[in-house]
Nucleic acid binder design. Structure first.
Lengths: 210, 210
DNA sequence: TGCTACATACCGACCAGTCGGTAATGTAGC
DNA sequence: GCTACATTACCGACTGGTCGGTATGTAGCA
């Protein structure tokens, strides 16, 4: 018999904040920002309302924190992907990036769609804090991706006067639009098809494939 | 003195339904579906709650009707555009279509963004009625646009094995994504840039321009 | 002892939806 | 062309429940 009694189902003190952010990512992607209540978030995270408002001053503040965490996770999973980062040729890396995003589009839309895009679609006009955080998230991703694209341009050249940053934003646009179409059609295939068009466009710009 | 007294500001019987649909298009595009309450819709339309539930059984039912009206309006404004329909060469018509969509992207996002995309982003998993209506709206637009694209392919040919319908959906994807990016960046310019990328892609597919 | 990390109970505002009623608009019979 | 009745369009007070947020208390750790 241990001197300590068995853990009496205490929900582990100290991680309420992180659990709430995870719950936000899951619930908001499924049912949107406004339709997700603080009570629902607390129930999903297994914490009480007191814990919620201990960590976040308002629901909006949680949204901002969840957006920042989402951005950080995206950086880790996509730009931190070891196999992808190991690719020497920057253009190969750009295509591998697109292929990675394509591969992630599978199953129900609530699992692959973007938390940030969902939030900003609803809140851009009514919450400047959420609008600003969402804009920063998109900018961070695009600027980081533009670095790879610029390297590819430097090595291989590109058709027309396309800028790396503009192309990076276009990739984001296609992904965000693909999520919307997938939700409307109830099918991820339509989203993958659009990303395939996008990939072909980039191939054409770099005069590769064909 | 007329025998009839002056009209005592009666809000014109018989158009409550249409006014509510217009209010829905405006309010939902600005603040999203869930954040738009029935009371707000009534206030904006200048009708009472009694009128609302006389015409629509539920809030969802109004959403379905507003989606159908949105689809019809899009058909009129875009495919019914006289100058566009008069273009003889189908490929010219396809480019004029894209240019028209590009020209509409101006001012605040709540004025050019898509009602259907906004609704389905929030409601796809929680309201099958709204999901279905949104899917039908997107399908209607894409299938109609694909007719023009198919004619262009028949006349001019196209690179690769691209299908007209797939390309039509891709155009829609880029537009929907452009609306999301415009909201996040607080700037329509980023949306126009993506549509410019899209136009260049179509030009390359049809080996035109450059 | 004092601070952090919660929990519990509660608040007024607002939510979608209901319901009994009224006024305008057909419509059928004579 | 007038009455009787049916139908449609609309009104607004009301309901049970949920909303975001607050006030106060407490358990665990330094």
């Amino acid at each position: 018999m241990p001197s300590r009694e068995a853990p009496p189902f205490k929900p582990a003190r100290g991680n309420a904040r992180g659990t709430l952010l995870d719950a936000a990512h899951a619930l908001v992607r499924r049912q949107g920002w406004a339709a997700t209540s603080v009570d629902q978030l607390c129930a999903a995270a297994g914490v009480t309302k007191g814990a919620f408002f201990h960590h976040f001053a308002t629901k909006d503040a949680l949204g901002v924190a969840a957006t920042e965490q989402w951005t950080e996770r995206a950086r880790e999973h996509i730009f931190g992907n070891a196999a992808l980062a190991a690719i020497a040729d920057p253009l190969d890396r750009v295509f591998a990036h697109i292929d990675l995003r394509l591969a992630l589009i599978d199953g129900p839309a609530e699992d692959f769609s973007c938390f940030v895009g969902t939030v900003v679609q609803e809140a851009f006009a009514t919450s400047s804090a959420l609008r600003f955080a969402s804009g920063a998230s998109m900018t961070t991703y695009a600027e980081r991706f533009a670095e790879d694209i610029q390297q590819a341009i430097d090595v291989h050249g590109i058709a027309g006067q396309t800028s790396a940053l503009s192309l990076a934003y276009h990739v984001q646009t296609v992904l965000q639009g693909a999520f919307v179409l997938a939700k409307a059609k109830g099918d991820a295939a339509i989203a993958r098809e659009s990303v395939a068009h996008l990939k072909r466009y980039v191939e054409m710009l770099f005069e590769r494939g064909n």
